[in-house]
Structures are given as structure tokens and as C-alpha cells.
Amino acid sequence: MATNRPNGSIYTKIDKNIATIEFGHPASNSFVAEMLDRLTDEFNKLASNTSISIIVLKSEGERAFCGGASFDELLAVSTIEEGHIFFSGFANVINAMRSCNKVIVGRVHGKTVGGGVGLAAACDYVFATVNAPIRLSELTIGIAPLVIEPAVERKIGVAAISEMSLAPTAWKNAYWAQEKGLYSKVFETTNELDDEMYFFTQKLASYNTEALAEWRKILWKNTDHWSTLLSERASITGRLAISEFTKTALSKFKK
């Protein structure tokens, strides 16, 4: 059942040594600042839970996986500082996922835009359906995918992120995302996805927790500077977000 709360929802369920975080928002599972803060806190809290070895990240409903940043909150941004604070939300989530000592498995069941692509990229292994195309639409509203770029480029490379971002109105299908390395497995239906993901996570959770944590450090090597980098990128994006171009573009989208 999808949430109708304007501030969205973050819900965590723990079953043995697997934690499942489910987020939701009535506007295509987009993120308001409060949700981003709560999601960051949830990853940090689970990182310190020694009984957990695997985290599954999923969203509510059957349509979009994630619509990116909240247009309403973007429209409300009026200063560079407010913009920096808002985009730091995505920076903080990605950094919390990056520094987490648990393997993170993503479940992407539907369309994914902007910051949602960044969340998928920050997962270690991603299950998706054929109904999960991706798009980086930031340039259409006067900003750029600066904050999520390090995570997305790490997965799909410079050429693919260039191809996506410079054609911001074009969708890339799930098989393209798999070919480039964002998705690990693609299924025809969510039932197939859930069955396979269940077996995968159960198997993964049976492995040595310490070995998984040590291996994850290697997979995320050379990213320690992201704490500073993503904050700097949030400042630049915040400045772009208060431009006349962005305000006009967002107003048109709202109408």
C-alpha cells in the first residue's frame, strides 16, 4: 500500500540478518529533505547493527521506483544555502551507503529518474524489471547531476553517463542499464525479481559477515574523498537551483 503522507515514509523491516528499507512518497516516490535525512540515519543505524549483514533498498507501489528530488521543495529553495542543504540530502545518503559496512542490494521495479539513479548506483547489486528505465533529466530544469555523478560514473563509466545526461529527455531501458553495469539482473516481472532476490539475499546472508564487510571496503576503494566532493557538488547544484532558468522550468513542469 503506497503512502499518502506529504513527507513520505521510510520503513525498515529486519528478518534475521537481512534488513529491508522501504521508502515511499505519493509523488512517484520522489524525495523531500526529511526523507533523505531519515534514509541517511537509517543506513548509519544499520551499519552499527552487528546482527545485520545485508541491506535491501526498495520503494513502495508498483509504478516508479524513484522520481528523484521533490519539485515542490526545489521550487521553495530561494538561497544558495538552502539549495546546498537540500542537495546535501542526496550527498549524505550516498555517502552513508558508500561507507556502510553491509552489502546493499537494490530492488528497482519501475522508472528511475535523477537522484533515484544515484541511489541505484550506490547499491552493490541491483535487481530490476524490464519496467525500470532510467533517465538523468537534470539539464531540462537548469541543474546537472553533479552530486550523484561520482556514484553513477563508478558503475557505468564516463561515456555512458555522458550519453544519458546530455540527452536528458530520453529514457534508457533496463537492458541498457544492465549492459552498462548499473543493473545486475533484469526480469520480466516483479514476481520473478522477488523470487530471485530472495534466494540471492538468503545465500549472501549465509556468508561470513566479516568477509563481506572487508570485501565491500575493496569494492569501494578510492572513494573516501567523496565526503568533501559531494558536499562541494551540493553547493554548486544549490547555486544552479536558484537560477531564473530553473525556477521557470520547474514552474512549467508543475503546470
Rank of each mutant, 00 (worst) to 15 (best):
T190N: 12
S99N: 07
G89Y: 00
A177R: 02
E210F: 01
V105W: 10
N7H: 07
A160M: 13
K203W: 04
F200N: 15
V152Y: 11
Y183Q: 14
I104N: 11
L240K: 11
R5C: 07
A76N: 10
A91H: 00
K102A: 10
S251L: 14
I161W: 15
T209P: 10
V130M: 03
D72F: 09
I21T: 08
L193D: 12
P145E: 07
I52E: 02
N7W: 09
E60C: 09
S9P: 06
K13M: 02
A69G: 09
I80C: 15
H25W: 14
T209Q: 13
I94E: 01
Y183I: 06
E82K: 14
L230F: 00
W215G: 13
S251M: 07
G238F: 08
L39C: 04
R233E: 02
W176R: 09
S30N: 09
E214W: 10
A177S: 05
D72A: 15
N7R: 11
A33E: 10
G24V: 08
G115R: 00
G238A: 05
T50H: 12
I21S: 02
L74E: 15
S70K: 04
G110R: 01
A64P: 05
M35L: 11
S251C: 07
K185I: 05
K58I: 10
L139E: 01
D124R: 12
T248C: 13
A121Y: 06
N131G: 07
N44P: 01
A91D: 01
T20A: 07
D15L: 08
L204E: 08
S243M: 06
F200Q: 04
I242H: 05
V105R: 13
N95E: 01
L182M: 05
K45D: 15
T237I: 13
M197T: 12
P6F: 15
A241K: 07
S243I: 13
R38L: 14
I55F: 02
A64H: 10
P150G: 00
T190D: 07
W220P: 00
A47M: 09
A19I: 03
E210Y: 02
R5S: 12
A96E: 00
T169I: 05
L212F: 03
L46M: 14
A121Q: 01
W215I: 07
I85V: 11
R135I: 11
A69R: 14
A213Y: 04
T79I: 11
K247D: 15
L229I: 02
L74D: 12
T129V: 02
A213K: 08
K185C: 01
S28I: 08
S30A: 13
R239P: 09
H84K: 15
R154K: 11
I134V: 04
L75V: 13
A132K: 07
T189H: 09
Y207P: 12
A128D: 00
A151N: 02
F87K: 04
G8F: 15
K252P: 05
S165K: 04
L193Q: 12
A27D: 13
S99Q: 15
I104F: 00
E62F: 12
A121F: 06
T140P: 00
T112V: 14
